[in-house]
């Protein structure tokens, strides 16, 4: 790892890390990126791991997305994440693509950056000038722009576990299964004595980076789950997102779908929290 950081420091912005290559290689093949030095980190030992950490899990820089699907520690501590990675591309992509690579790349329609934001993940970053810890909120600046310096590598991502009373849901609309999301929503709801004690809501595919809604989350806390509440929240989310339109979907469509998926996500998360959905 020190050698990789050293090389990145030596060649500066001309150098790029190659992890799973499932985002970088297409860019190279299409000549959309033309770095003069590629630093392949695939042979760095002991970076392919999933470990328990403080009630949650820690995932190393070379852990492939596929491994998360049927890892026993993930299944026990954070089943949301096992379900989430199945939305990423296809098994053949997940066999190479890494969890940390997806988070570092930061595609606004990608699942893992949105999950990192929703789950308050911590990113352990190593660079020329030492190590630091970053939150996903501080990482994502805008479209494929992050606050990582050219010599910095995400060495590990740590996802805290969810409280036992929490339910979750992942909702996504894409043109075909395995495509990047047109719009996606991740919701987590904790219920205590019938009232919402914790709420997290993240929308992705609706702008330059995944978005979280702290104010809307705050309003949910203390309320009793109901159809009316979730419909009202859906309208709020729909009104506050500001997506771009492109060849795949118009901005108006994305706004509408963000609302619909928010309602479905809250309903499902609430059902799960009540124990109505297995796993």
């Amino acid at each position: 790892m020190e050698e990789a950081v050293g090389l990145l420091g030596l060649y500066g912005p001309e150098a790029k890390i190659l992890a799973g290559g499932q985002s970088l290689m297409p860019l190279l093949n299409m000549r959309l990126a033309r770095p003069s030095v590629i630093v392949d980190i695939n042979r760095i030992g002991e970076m392919d791991y999933i470990r328990p950490s403080d009630g949650g899990i820690a995932i190393g820089a070379l852990t492939r997305e596929r491994r998360v699907e049927d890892d026993p520690i993930v299944a026990e501590r954070l089943p949301l994440l096992a379900a989430l990675v199945k939305w990423i591309g296809h098994p053949q992509i997940r066999n190479r693509g890494t969890v940390c690579g997806s988070i570092a790349h930061g595609d606004p329609a990608a699942e893992l950056p949105a999950a990192a934001l929703a789950l308050d993940a911590e990113l352990a970053v190593v660079g020329k000038s030492g190590t630091r810890t970053l939150s996903p909120d501080d990482l994502y600046l805008g479209y494929l722009a992050t606050s990582l310096a050219p010599d910095e590598i995400i060495r590990e991502v740590r996802f805290p576990g969810l409280p036992a009373n929490a339910g979750w849901s992942i909702q996504e609309v894409a043109r075909r299964h395995g495509d990047f999301a047109l719009v996606g929503v991740i919701a987590v709801l904790g219920l205590t004595e019938g009232r919402i004690s914790e709420a997290r809501l993240v929308c992705f595919g609706v702008g330059g980076r995944p978005v979280r809604f702290p104010e809307i989350e705050g309003q949910l806390v203390g309320s009793t789950p109901s159809e009316d509440l979730f419909s009202a929240t859906a309208r709020q989310v729909s009104a506050s997102v500001d997506p771009d339109g492109d060849i795949h979907a118009s901005a108006a469509y994305r706004k509408e779908v963000a609302g619909v998926l928010t309602r479905r996500a809250l309903e499902q998360a609430s059902e799960r929290a009540k124990g109505g959905i297995q796993s």
Binding site: L18, G21, Q22, M25, P26, N29, M30, I38, D40, N42, R66, G89, H90, P91, Q92, I93, N95, R96
Partner: peptide, 27 residues
């Protein structure tokens, strides 16, 4: 396609199905 979408180039790497267009030969 040379960008991972079509699957025509899929081979097994240490038993796992991967896109050979998204790997470098030196890897």
């Amino acid at each position: 396609c040379e960008h991972g979408s079509c699957g025509a180039c899929t081979v097994l790497l240490n038993g796992a199905a991967v896109r050979s267009c998204l790997m470098l030969a030196v890897q």
